[in-house]
Design a protein around this nucleic acid. Structure first.
Length: 922
RNA sequence: AGUCGCGUAGCUCAGUUGGUUAGAGCACCACAUUGACAUUGUGGGGGUCGGUGGUUCGAAUCCACUCGCGACUACCA
């Protein structure tokens, strides 16, 4: 074995081998355990969020697989309609394609997307493999596969027949760049500085109630041209005289009435508002109530259309705004413009301003589906972890809006509806089917051009991947799934809709637990984004990357090239040496240790480095064990004697195993990581390995040597299995060496059994002995360090004032103490001891004769520090115990414990004080 | 405006139903080093737990108010 751990050398080898051996397929035995991967965009690449999420899912998957469950982690990718279509359009352009999408035509363009999917589609799944993700690749799915498409069609038809899908002309969120409708949740409302325009609407009658005009304010003056009315609140007496009167719509020759409507807030502004039914969601409602004419001003790409006055036609919406403001000024209808903070709706894909737009679309009637979905969570059938996310879920579900599912795109599942020449439509599996079902003869039919929202097919993921609508064995075995691991940011997009559709289609919830993790942020707590130039690629943390490569990666293909210099500077400052290779295991362990409840993950490279060192620690522990055990009798059969250290580490292992089980079962991945880290490094390596040297390099008898070798190798073997779900590679590589030495056989650690704690291996006596032993050694080391005595220099030592227990322990463990404490001689003295440096370990007084070793001042100072420290604690405790209410109210054992502690402190202080006096007198 | 989350060491984070002297990793300081490991070892310094008030024998933990940060939802004419 090499002296240092090199992740590169082992990772690829093992993943390939696991996959080839088919170790990731469900075993077919045990109780089912299922996780569905949230399907990443098929043409995407792995980012830190994926890496984090996939690490958690893989830990759960590997854990359950090793626990003997029939474990499935279902892989797959999403067609991601809008995102993919945009990427391909951009790509074609970059490749020198002169034809636009529309010139090319639907069929050819979709063909290009499939080509692109084939070309780049493997990247993210390869990256998942790099992460060590143990997905059942044999059954990989894609949301546009035939089977998946059949499921989409089936459920669409079912929903339609049940009256839960309808088609209608509604005001929807319209993206004028993509020229498609999007759903409410695809719109981001961003606060920005804008203006409020105060406009006058002259009365048709010239003067009413002593006024010549109505005064309203708007942030969107260009929509004035489509106004249907002015409105005031019904109870607003200020406007009694003007109700029913007409005003001129500025810049037009249209007249509109002043009406009353509850919607108006009389407190706000002038208490009078313009109503523009075609261009505002609220106004649309008002317009419906008052049967207003709906005037749409825009073409699908938000250019002023023929409904606008001639002068504005053909203008972009923003240019039109500028023009109308100018025109209002000239006409003296603009009272003033004031700065105003407003929220503007942006499309989350295109970043363009979304328009409310009146079109024909398909909708899912959400309320009937939401009811049982809410019930599933209130009843506990679906559990959110952490639970506070339930609130967000309920909030949305209880105010749910109908879901606009049609998109005017080409990449996606085509809507299974056909139109005749009169505009009647028929929903069914195919053109042939709808003809038959509706007795249409041979009239001309054309299929709806629209495709479905990507999230429509995603909502079916938990069962469509398992073969639904076929009643497959997989479906029976693995639905409902065990846990959904996902980010809180897609509760609405995905989680809620899966629950609704799962219950609707399957009659059962799609998952029992929903583990919601936070966002992965950069070291400053910023969201990672290309435009900020702070993106980390998980693969770069695994393999390492030079500074120059990192800089060019971060500054290439920028939307705003201006930022490149700034990004370069920040990158050079943060990573002056580039990024070192850490390996997959270290990255996974970092995520695991940061996976705490309900909190974003601020990625800390320092931690990743620490955990790479941890890998190296394990690696070298394996080397040590191998060197001392290979070719020797490890007592796997026959008689052995176990030393106190052997019994202690075995006992500690049981505790660690118990803690790890509890941690993983309760999704406390950070606890699991910490427990294993501490066990391996702080107990097994720091103490146990050192203790075995006293046995193995000493003159112990053969039974003891065999016992120690056996323990050394067995405990390590179990610890590797314990760690495997978090660090699959290094544990596999090491296990292949260690398992045979421990008498354990098997192809791979990943299909070996997860260690279970055994109560009868707990040994509290051994634990107590080692606690004592550590206290003594720590005391000795501390004196050494504080007195500046070279650690290598062997010391004589005298022990005094110990109890009978101390004496027998000193007797029993002195070989080990001499070794680890670098002690020269060792006596339990009863007679007067010479002037010494003194440390206390319980009752035991450790005296290191100081003549010629240490200086008086340093020792006095040290003793005083020890006394002060105890004095402080003594003060607190005696105060507490002097409080009668504490003594009478607190649990008795707490008081007893404090009293005992106080007594010890008193004794210790007396002893130290005496020592101090003694030294002073020298 | 409403809801939720967060604020603990220089940094990144733990801290289970209130109960020893509030912990870890990284960073820092000192010392060490032929023997599993410098991707190391040993020892050390560093925190009025955002603030104020309250409940309690006892508060990082519970309550109220408050400051700061973040997210989400709705509205903003």
């Amino acid at each position: 074995m090499d002296k240092t751990y090199d992740p590169k050398a082992i990772e690829k080898k093992w993943y390939h081998s696991w996959e080839k051996q088919g170790l990731f397929a469900p075993s077919g035995e045990g109780k089912p355990y299922t996780i569905m991967i949230p399907p990443p965009n098929v043409t995407g690449t792995l980012h830190m969020g994926h890496a984090f999420q996939d690490t958690i899912m893989d830990i759960l998957t590997r854990y359950h697989r090793m626990m003997g469950d029939n474990t499935l982690w279902q892989p797959g990718t999403d067609h991601a309609g809008i995102a993919t279509q945009m990427v391909v359009e951009r790509n074609l352009k970059a490749k020198g394609e002169t034809q636009t999408r529309h010139e090319m035509g639907r069929e050819k363009f979709v063909e290009k997307i499939w080509e692109w999917k084939e070309e780049s589609g493997g990247q993210i799944t390869q990256q998942l493999r790099r992460m060590g993700a143990s997905l059942d690749w044999e059954n990989e799915r894609f949301t546009m596969d035939d089977g998946m498409s059949a499921a989409v069609q089936k459920i669409f038809i079912k929903l339609y027949n049940d009256g839960l899908i309808y088609r209608g002309k509604r005001l929807v969120n319209w993206d004028p760049v993509l020229k498609t409708a999007v759903s409410d949740i695809e719109v981001e409302n961003i606060e920005e500085q804008g203006f409020m325009y105060h406009v006058r609407y002259p009365f048709v009658e010239g003067e009413v109630d002593g006024k010549t005009h109505m005064h309203i304010a708007t942030t969107r003056p260009e929509t004035i041209l489509a106004d249907g009315a002015l409105a005031v609140h019904p109870d607003d007496s200020r406007y009694d005289a003007v109700i029913g009167k007409e005003v001129w719509v500025p810049m037009t020759d249209r007249k509109i009435p002043v009406i009353r409507d509850e919607y108006v807030d009389p407190e706000f502004g002038t208490g009078c508002v313009k109503i523009t039914p075609a261009h505002d969601f609220n106004d649309y409602q008002v317009g419906q109530r008052h049967e207003m004419e709906i005037i749409n001003l825009f073409t699908p790409d938000a250019i002023m259309n023929e409904n606008a006055p001639q002068a504005y036609q053909g203008m972009d919406r923003f240019a039109a705004r500028d023009k109308i403001v100018e025109d209002l000024k000239v006409a003296e209808l603009l009272e003033r413009i004031e700065p105003h903070t407003l929220k503007r709706p942006y499309g989350d894909r295109t970043g363009t301003v979304i328009e409310p737009y009146l079109t024909d679309q398909w909708f899912v009637k959400a309320e009937p589906l939401a009811k049982p979905a809410v019930e599933a969570v209130t009843s506990g059938k679906v559990r959110f972890i952490p639970s506070h996310h339930e609130k967000t879920y309920f909030e949305w579900m209880n105010n749910i809006q109908d879901w606009c599912i049609s998109r005017q795109l080409w990449w996606g599942h085509r809507i299974p509806a056909w139109f005749d020449a009169e505009g009647n439509f028929y929903v069914g599996e195919s053109e042939h089917a709808v003809r038959e079902q509706n007795n249409l003869g041979d009239i001309e039919l054309t299929q709806d051009e629209d495709v479905l929202d990507t999230w429509f097919s995603s909502a079916l993921w938990p069962f469509s991947t398992l073969g639904w609508p076929e009643e497959s064995e997989r479906l029976k075995a693995f639905y409902p799934t065990s846990v959904l691991v996902t980010g809180f940011d897609i509760i609405f997009f995905w989680v809620a809709r899966m629950v609704m559709f799962g219950i609707y289609a399957m009659g059962e919830v799609p998952f029992k637990d929903v583990y919601m993790h936070g966002l992965v942020r950069d070291n400053e707590g910023q969201k990672m984004s290309k435009s900020k130039g702070n993106v980390l690629d998980p693969i770069d943390i695994i393999d390492g990357i030079s500074l120059e490569d990192l800089v060019s990666k971060r500054t290439s293909n920028m939307m705003q090239p201006k930022l490149a210099a700034k990004i370069e500077k920040a990158t050079r400052r943060q990573f002056p040496e580039g990024i070192n290779a850490h390996g997959t295991d270290a990255l996974r362990f970092t995520f695991c240790s940061l996976a705490t409840m309900g909190r974003d993950v601020v990625f800390d490279m320092g931690r990743a480095e620490g955990y790479r060192n941890f890998c190296n620690k394990i690696w070298n522990a394996v080397r040590y064990v191998t060197q001392n055990v290979e070719g020797k009798d490890c007592g796997l059969t026959g008689e052995v004697t176990l030393s106190v250290a052997d019994r202690w580490i075995i006992s500690e292992l049981q505790k660690a195993e118990q803690a790890v089980h509890e941690a993983i079962e309760s999704y406390r991945f950070d606890f699991a990581a910490q427990t294993i880290y501490e066990f391996i490094w702080n107990e097994y390596c720091d103490w146990y390995l050192e203790l075995t040297k006293a046995v193995l390099y000493g003159d112990s008898d053969e039974l003891a040597m065999r016992g120690t070798r056996r323990t050394l190798v067995k405990v390590l073997e179990a610890a590797l299995r314990l760690l495997h779900p978090i660090m699959p590679y290094v544990t596999e590589e090491c296990w292949q060496t260690i398992a045979p030495l421990a008498g354990v056989s098997g192809e791979s650690i990943s299909t070996s059994a997860y260690p279970l704690p055994e109560v009868d291996k707990r040994d509290e006596a051994a634990e107590a002995d080692i606690v004592w032993f550590k206290a003594v050694l720590l005391a000795i080391r501390r004196i050494r360090s504080e007195m500046n005595i070279a650690p290598s220099k062997p010391l004589p030592i005298l022990l005094t004032e110990g109890s009978a227990d101390d004496r027998s322990r000193v007797e029993a463990y002195q070989t080990m103490m001499i070794k680890l404490g670098k002690l020269e001689s060792f006596d339990f003295a009863t007679q007067d001891v010479p002037e010494s440096a003194v440390a206390l370990a319980g009752d035991l007084k450790i005296n290191i004769p100081m003549k010629g070793l240490i200086d008086k001042d340093a020792e006095l100072e040290r003793l005083q520090r020890e006394i002060d420290k105890r004095g402080k604690e003594q003060g607190i405790l005696s105060g507490k115990l002097g409080n009668e209410k504490y003594v009478s109210n607190a649990p008795a054992e707490l008081v007893a414990r404090d009293q005992a502690r106080l007594a010890t402190l008193d004794d210790e202080i007396t002893a130290l004080q005496a020592q101090l006096t003694k030294i002073q007198a020298l």
